[in-house]
C-alpha cells in the first residue's frame, strides 16, 4: 500500500514536471514574459549564495532557483537577478521580482501580507557562542545564563524570548555582521541562527566561536521552514510549488542540499 502511494506520487510528479517543462504554467504570469525575475538579499550570504554572485548558480539557494527555473521551463539565461531588502519585499504595492529568496521563514502572520511557496528547506535553529563561552553545556538551564544576541529581523527572536527566556535582556542587531562585531567586543556570549548560517559563521567569520547545539527540528518552535516570498495573490505560486514538488520527488533538491550545506549531524541537540 505504502509503496503504491510512493510510486504514484513520483509518477504524478514526473507527469507534472513534463507538463511544466513545456513552459505553459508560467506563461503570462511573470514580470517580463519569458524571463524569471528573482530577488535575493543585498548582500546574499554564504552558504545560500556563494561570493554574493547568485548568477553563478553556486550556493544552496542559487542552485535551488536554477533547478526550479529549469523545471518551470526557463533556461539558465532566462533567470534575471535583482536585489531587495526584507522591507522592500513586504511593502505593499507592485514588486520588481517574481519571487524573493533569502531564507524567509514561513509564518502565519507573514502569510497574511505576502504569499510563500512550499518550503524548500527546513532548518533547525542553532546556538553559536563566542570564544568566552565555548564550554557552555547544551542544556536550556545553561543557555538561560548567557548574554544573548540575535538578528532583530529573524524569527529566532521569538524562539529566544518564548523558549530560552534568558535572565538578562538580549541585544538585537540589524544583521549578522553586527552580531559578529558584538561577539568580538564581548558584549554578547551567544547568538541564535539557522544551523547552516551558524556553522558558516563559526567556521569562517567569527574566530574562536563554536556551534554548541541545535534545537530539535521537529519542535514546532525550533525549526524554520524557508519559503520563497511572492506578492500576495501571485499566480506563479502554483507553478513554483509544482516545480518544488518535482525537484523534491526526483532527488534534485536533496542533491543540492548535500552539495552546498554541511553535514549537520555532528551538532548536539539541546536538551
Amino acid at each position: 500500500m505504502f509503496k503504491k502511494t510512493t510510486i504514484s506520487v513520483v509518477l504524478t510528479a514526473l507527469m507534472a514536471s513534463t507538463a511544466i517543462a513545456g513552459g505553459h504554467c508560467a506563461a503570462d504570469k511573470t514580470l517580463t514574459e519569458g524571463k524569471l525575475t528573482v530577488a535575493t538579499g543585498n548582500p546574499a550570504y554564504f552558504p545560500w549564495v556563494i561570493d554574493d554572485a547568485p548568477e553563478s548558480g553556486q550556493g544552496f539557494e542559487a542552485a535551488v532557483v536554477y533547478a526550479v527555473a529549469k523545471e518551470m521551463g526557463f533556461s539558465d539565461s532566462d533567470v534575471v537577478w535583482v536585489r531587495s531588502s526584507f522591507d522592500e519585499a513586504i511593502q505593499p504595492g507592485a514588486k520588481d521580482f517574481d519571487f524573493n529568496i533569502q531564507q524567509y521563514s514561513i509564518t502565519a502572520e507573514r502569510d497574511e501580507i505576502v504569499d510563500f511557496s512550499a518550503p524548500y528547506f527546513t532548518s533547525p535553529m542553532a546556538v553559536l557562542v563566542g570564544p568566552g563561552a565555548v564550554d557552555t553545556a547544551a542544556t536550556m538551564a545553561a543557555l538561560k545564563g548567557l548574554k544573548w544576541g540575535a538578528s532583530g529581523s529573524h524569527t529566532s527572536v521569538q524562539k529566544l524570548m518564548n523558549d530560552i527566556r534568558p535572565m538578562s535582556d538580549p541585544l538585537l542587531y540589524a544583521d549578522n555582521a553586527d552580531i559578529n562585531a558584538a561577539i568580538g567586543a564581548n558584549q554578547i556570549d551567544a547568538a541564535l541562527f539557522d544551523l547552516p548560517t551558524a556553522l558558516f559563521l563559526s567556521a569562517v567569520m567569527i574566530e574562536g566561536s563554536k556551534v554548541i547545539g541545535q534545537f530539535p527540528a521537529d519542535d514546532s518552535q525550533g525549526g524554520d521552514q524557508f519559503g520563497m516570498l511572492l506578492e500576495d495573490g501571485n499566480q506563479l505560486k502554483t507553478c513554483i510549488d509544482d516545480a518544488l514538488a518535482a525537484i523534491t520527488a526526483n532527488g534534485t533538491l536533496a542533491a543540492i542540499e548535500a552539495t552546498w550545506l554541511q553535514d549537520t549531524t555532528g551538532v548536539p541537540v539541546i536538551q
Binding site: 522591507d87 497574511e112 532583530g152 529573524h154 521569538q158 558584538a182
Partner: peptide
C-alpha cells in the same frame, strides 16, 4: 538600536519582521 539595545525602534522592527507589517 544599531549596536544592540532593544529600544522602541528595534522593538518595532522586530514586530515588523515577525508580522511582515509596518
Amino acid at each position: 538600536s544599531f549596536i544592540g539595545p532593544v529600544e522602541i525602534f528595534r522593538q518595532a522592527g522586530v514586530f515588523k519582521s515577525l508580522l511582515a507589517n509596518f
